[in-house]
């Protein structure tokens, strides 16, 4: 299901117009992004949690060229489904 289908289904379920729903979703995602950027974790009960994890820098080797590269540290977003969601699937 792509974003368009998602928005239209959301619109029918919430009663907002598609336009409003799109705007609300944009606001929601920017808010989530803002929270995650500050390394806050977002915990949605019954769905799962979004968490920012720090990955250390490391050295990797290109197996074909044997070239060694230093991969810089980075922050990644991880999602952990809640146990209730895990059981349902």
């Amino acid at each position: 299901m792509n974003n368009k289908e998602f928005i239209s289904q959301l619109a029918t379920r919430t009663g907002f117009t598609v336009k409003d729903t799109t705007a609300l979703m944009a606001a929601l995602t920017t808010e989530m992004a803002a929270q995650l950027e500050e390394e806050n974790s977002i915990n949605i009960f019954g769905f799962g949690s979004f968490e920012v994890k720090k990955k250390l820098e490391r050295v990797v080797i290109n197996p074909s060229t044997k070239q060694r590269m230093l991969v810089p540290p980075k922050m990644t977003l991880s999602f952990k489904p809640s146990t209730t969601l895990k059981e349902k699937k």
């Binding site: 992004a33 060694r68 230093l70 540290p73 990644t76 999602f79």
Partner: peptide
Amino acid sequence: FTPDKSLADCVNRPFAAFETVIL
């Protein structure tokens, strides 16, 4: 879950300036 490019970049902003260095 695979984060959107925009969200992943946003989260990684503190380290965005880093690049992979050949050793």
